[in-house]
Each structure stands twice: as structure tokens, then as C-alpha cells.
Amino acid sequence: MTNKENFLKGFFRENAVFTLLLGMCPALGVTSSAINGLGMGLATTFVLIMSNVFISIFSSFIPDKVKIPSFIVIIAAFVTMVDLIMAGYAPALHEQLGVFIPLIVVNCLVLGRAEAFASKNQIFPSIIDGVSMGLGFSMALTMLGAVRELLGAGKIFGITIFSENYGMLIFVLAPGAFIALGYLIAFINKLRKA
């Protein structure tokens, strides 16, 4: 595929959350606000790009049978890096995202791209793949976070749009995450068919 196609695919046609249904756990778990969704998305994008690069470079040196474990170790290393950097330089966000930061390592999106793309392609396309899928993922999480934050608390990115008393509290709670995502996917499906 051309570089442009490669870059654009992660946003809609192959969007991790809306189309491929990957990375559901963080999508539901940290999107109680737009900024949390964005933060998680960017952290995951960093891991995606770095692991894609390293796996693209070294994949040919790794025997087939240990490919998956090796990929997992590489991904886990970058996840720990993100964890440490955030703990030191973005402590508030780090606390909000909590256990979902180490869980990036089991985000099927990351291992999936490593296996399906990075191990079979050159560095530059792998970088674009990481950027595309990562930003698409970030976009999905931010959208879901914004919807939940707006409907549930009347705010977006912390800016109050309407009073919290008019919000539907359920949306910032567990059930609301499921319901909001369900309708969001249905809505996006509708848009894609149109």
C-alpha cells in the first residue's frame, strides 16, 4: 500500500476500537474523561511506534518459535518505560490511568501490529503503521472519553459546558462505558455505510 494509505487506515477503515474491536479494555476503562482517553491513547501510540521500529529491525534475527515471547518482552520494556516516565513527569495522569498503563502490554492492538505488520515490513512503513494505528486509537479513546465526560459530568477536557446536576451520572460509571461505546460504534458504522 502507498504511504498515504498506510497512514490513513488507522483512523477509520481499520480503526482499532471501532472497526477491529481491539484494545477494548483501556477503551472502556480509562475513558471517563476526554483527557484520560487522550493520555492513554498517546502512551499506547508511543509503545506502538517504538515496538514496531525495534521489531521491524530485529525480527529477522529471531527464530520463529520465540518470536511471540520476544515481541512481548520488547513491548513490555517500552510499556515499563512509559510507566516510569509518566510516574516521574506526569504523576496526575499516571495515577488516573493506574493499572491500565502496564496493561498496554496485553493490548491486542500492539502485539497484533507487531506480528501482522512490523515483523514483515521495513522500518519506515512500520513507523507509519504505528503512528496511524496509534493516533486512530487515540482518536477513538478521546471521542469516547469526550462523550462520556460530556453526558456524565457536563464537561469536556475539564471545561464545564453545563452543570453537573444535569448530567447522566451513569456515563462516567462502568455501565455507561459499555453503552456509550456500543452506540458510538453503531454511529460510526452508520457513517461508514453512508
Partner: peptide, 21 residues
């Protein structure tokens, strides 16, 4: 049609989560 599959499943999961609340 738009709700078939994942969307409906998610909404139902949300209702199940509500019950567990």
C-alpha cells in the same frame, strides 16, 4: 442493521454491568 453484533452486545453488557452495580 447498525446495531447488530458489537454495538448491541456492548449495550447489553452495559445493562448487565448496571445490574451488578
Amino acid at each position: 442493521k447498525g446495531m447488530k453484533g458489537a454495538p448491541a452486545a456492548l449495550v447489553v453488557a452495559g445493562l448487565l454491568a448496571m445490574a451488578f452495580m
